[in-house]
């Protein structure tokens, strides 16, 4: 079964990939915050953000096609907001566009611009962070930045078993597809629900045997990992450059 969507490009060797995961997390999370807190009217600041992200993407050697495809994830939500804009009643400054001459208020357009540019830039940030770091390093980074240990451990187990459980589900689907003739819709739904049920029972039993195997090897509720993260001069340089740029963008943004 194929799952190529996690860690597809995290193995590339580039400046961005080599950065310490902790530095990357702080920088990109800070970047997202910086984007969210920017005034919607500061077009130049957004342009600067776009420029920085463009340079970082080029540095990371991750295929631009992949990043663009991934970033489409925000489009449906932006469209929903766009659809509601004509309904925003504002007394001043209306434009009339569209085939039926719908009145679109200036405030409505401003709301759409605000939401569209911020969500798109933020999503680029997150793609860059997660595509350039393998998931286990990302989790370890979050853990070392004092994120709640329990949830990180659950997440790392989840990551380990996502593929296993999904594989099992795909196999069941394939087996069903290869055996059943076009049934009625209802039977189809019923079979699907039963598959989910079987999947649950099997997953639960798997979890139990995993737990038993772990406790027989001395698991006491905590997971200890070796960390080999090291903050180098390049990390500090990258971090201070980004910090200066973001603060500068906020101070001098128009």
């Amino acid at each position: 079964m194929k799952h190529s969507y996690i860690d597809e490009y995290s193995g590339i060797d580039s400046f961005i990939h080599r950065l310490d995961p902790r530095i990357k997390i702080i920088t990109f999370v800070g970047f997202v915050f910086s984007i969210v807190f920017t005034k919607p009217t500061s077009c130049l600041t957004f342009l600067l953000y776009g420029l920085i992200l463009g340079i970082l993407i080029a540095l990371s050697k991750i295929p631009v096609r992949y990043i663009l495809k991934r970033s489409l994830v925000v489009v449906p939500f932006a469209l929903v907001v766009a659809a509601f804009i004509p309904f925003m009643k504002q007394p001043v400054g209306g434009y009339s566009l569209g085939p039926f001459g719908q009145a679109v208020s200036r405030d409505g357009l401003m709301v759409f611009w605000n939401v569209a540019v911020k969500s798109y830039l933020s999503v680029l940030c997150m793609i860059l962070l997660t595509a350039s770091t393998c998931f286990s390093d990302l989790l370890k980074g979050f853990a070392m930045l004092k994120c709640p240990q329990l949830i990180i451990m659950v997440l790392s187990f989840m990551y380990r078993y996502i593929f296993v459980i999904e594989d099992e589900f795909m196999k069941m689907k394939q087996a069903k597809a290869s055996r059943s003739v076009e049934d009625s819709k209802w039977l189809d739904v019923k079979a699907l629900a039963n598959m989910v049920g079987v999947l649950f029972v099997r997953a639960y039993e798997r979890a139990e045997s995993v737990y038993l195997a772990m406790s027989s090897r001395g698991f006491d509720g905590t997971v200890r990992t070796i960390h080999h993260f090291q903050i180098t001069a390049a990390d500090m340089l990258f971090f201070s450059a980004m910090l200066a740029l973001l603060i500068g963008a906020h101070l001098f943004g128009v």
Binding site: L150, V154, F157, Y161, I162, E166, V196, F200, A203, A207
Partner: peptide, 21 residues
Amino acid sequence: KDRMIPLMGVMSAFIFAAQMV
């Protein structure tokens, strides 16, 4: 108790897979 981490992890993976329905 200590069953929590493996159980919650595998169950999260299950719900993740079930969301493919």
